[in-house]
Design a protein around this nucleic acid. Structure first.
Lengths: 230, 230
DNA sequence: CAATGTGAAGACCTTCACAGCC
DNA sequence: GGCTGTGAAGGTCTTCACATTG
C-alpha cells in the first residue's frame, strides 16, 4: 500500500476523506451567508469538530489557507469538490424499490450533489414497469445492460438481505466498482471493489448500548461523557 | 472520562461495540442453520472480518469461548444481547414523516430487534392526523408529552436539515439522551446526550472519492487496494 | 491438537503546542 | 496579532504470533 499516485492528488487518510463532505456542506452554507473567508475555528463550530482537526484535515488536501486570515471559502469549496471527484456527475443504479429504495430514489440531496439516479431495478414483477419520477423500474436481469448504457459508476443496494449478494454480483459483473449497501447483510466482492455499508438497525443497536450505559452510570454517580464514534 | 462503571459490564471499546450487532446477526444466522458452536474463523467468514479481530472483540465482552472448540452460539448471542442492552425493548420516536421517515417507520428490522416505533411527529399540517401502520402522526409540539407517555428512549430525526436542530432540542427537552440523526445537518446537544449521524449523500460522496481514485490508478498501473473505513 | 485469549508491535488517528507567515 | 500548518506526543484500533487450555 504505497505512496505514489500523482495526478494532483496526494494520498488522503480515510478519516479525513470521511469528513470532507461535512466541510463541504458547512462551507457552502457559510458562503451562502456572505462569508468570503472562513477560519478553522468557524468551520469547527459549524461541523462540531475541533479547529485542530479541521486544520489537519485541510492541510491533508493541500494548503489553501492564509495565515492570519483563514481559508478562502470559494477556493476551498472548489478544491474539496475536486478531491472528492464531484466536478463530474455520477450515474447511480438503485437495486430494490421497497420503502427504502423509493425514499432514496426521491431523495433530493443526491441530485443536488451531482448524483443522478440513472436506473432502478427490482425482482418483483408487480413493480417492474412502474415509474418513479419518470424513471421506469426494470427487472434485475437488465442491470448489466442498463449500467453499461447509462455508464453507471455506483450501485446502491436497497433490497432485503436475501437478495443482496446476488445483486452485488450483478453489479460487479456490470463493471461497477463502488457499492453502497443498505441491506442488512455482508456482501463479498472482488478486491478492487469498494463497498460501504449503512445499516439502520445496527445504528439503533449501537445507540442502545450507549443509552443503557448512560442509564447505568446515572444510577451510581455523575452522568458519563457521551459521543459515539461512527 | 474515568474507568469504573461496574454493573456487570466492563468498558468496551467503541470500535468493538460498533461490530457487535454484526456478530449478533451472523450468530443468529449460523445458529439457525444448526451450528451449536462457532469458531472465530467461521464468524470472520460470515462478517467479512479477520479471525484475530473477532477474538479480540469477543474477549472484550468477556471470555465465553472454549479453547479447541469455539464459542457456544446460544450463550454468545445471549451475552451480546445483554451487553448491547437488547434484553429490554426500546421505544423510539421518529420526527419527520417524509420519504425517509416513512421508510423507517415501515422498516421491519426495527421491530425484529426490539425497537418499537412509539410515536411519529411532523410539522406539516397535511400529514398530522394521518396514520402509518395504525400509528397517528402528531404535531411536533406534542413530542415532549408523547415521549414521556411512551417512555421513549431514542429519537430519530428524519426531517429536512432546517428542522433538525429544533427537533433535537425538543427531544433533549423531553429527556431523550440518544439520537439518530438522518438530517444533513449538524445538531448540537448537551453533553451527556449521544448523537449518531447517518448521512446518505455523504456516503455517496465518500464513495465517489474512492471511485475516482480507482479510476485514476487504473490509468497508470495496477488497480489499488479497496475498502473504505466507515 | 485445535482454537481461544492476549501481550506486544505496528498502523492509524487525534490532540497538543508552537513555529512560521501574512 | 491572528491564524495556519505541522512536528511530536498521546490514544485508539488492528494485526501478529504464541502461550495456554480443554
Amino acid at each position: 500500500m504505497g505512496s505514489g499516485s500523482r495526478s494532483g492528488g496526494r494520498d488522503i487518510p480515510d478519516s479525513t476523506v470521511a469528513r470532507l463532505p461535512l466541510y463541504l456542506r458547512a462551507l457552502v452554507d457559510l458562503a451562502a451567508t456572505g462569508d468570503r473567508t472562513v477560519s478553522s475555528e468557524a468551520l469547527a463550530e459549524a461541523t462540531g469538530l475541533t479547529s485542530a482537526k479541521v486544520r489537519k484535515d485541510l492541510s491533508n488536501v493541500g494548503s489553501y489557507g492564509t495565515r492570519g486570515i483563514g481559508y478562502d471559502a470559494a477556493s476551498l469549496i472548489h478544491e474539496i469538490r475536486r478531491v472528492l471527484g464531484l466536478t463530474q456527475h455520477w450515474a447511480i443504479v438503485i437495486a430494490g424499490v421497497g420503502n427504502l429504495g423509493r425514499a432514496l430514489a426521491h431523495y433530493k440531496g443526491f441530485a443536488e450533489r451531482g448524483f443522478r439516479v440513472a436506473a432502478l431495478v427490482d425482482v418483483d414483477p408487480d413493480k417492474i414497469g412502474r415509474k418513479l419520477d419518470g424513471l421506469e423500474i426494470r427487472p434485475v436481469e437488465e442491470l448489466e445492460a442498463l449500467a453499461a448504457r447509462e455508464e453507471v459508476a455506483i450501485g446502491v443496494i436497497a433490497t432485503p438481505a436475501s437478495e443482496a449478494q446476488d445483486v452485488a454480483d450483478r453489479m460487479v459483473a456490470a463493471g461497477i466498482r463502488s457499492i453502497l449497501n443498505f441491506a442488512p447483510a455482508v456482501v463479498t466482492v472482488d478486491e478492487g471493489v469498494t463497498v460501504r455499508k449503512v445499516d439502520l438497525a445496527t445504528e439503533l443497536q449501537i445507540l442502545a448500548y450507549y443509552e443503557q450505559r448512560n442509564a447505568e452510570s446515572f444510577e451510581e454517580g455523575s452522568p458519563r461523557d457521551a459521543s459515539a464514534g461512527s
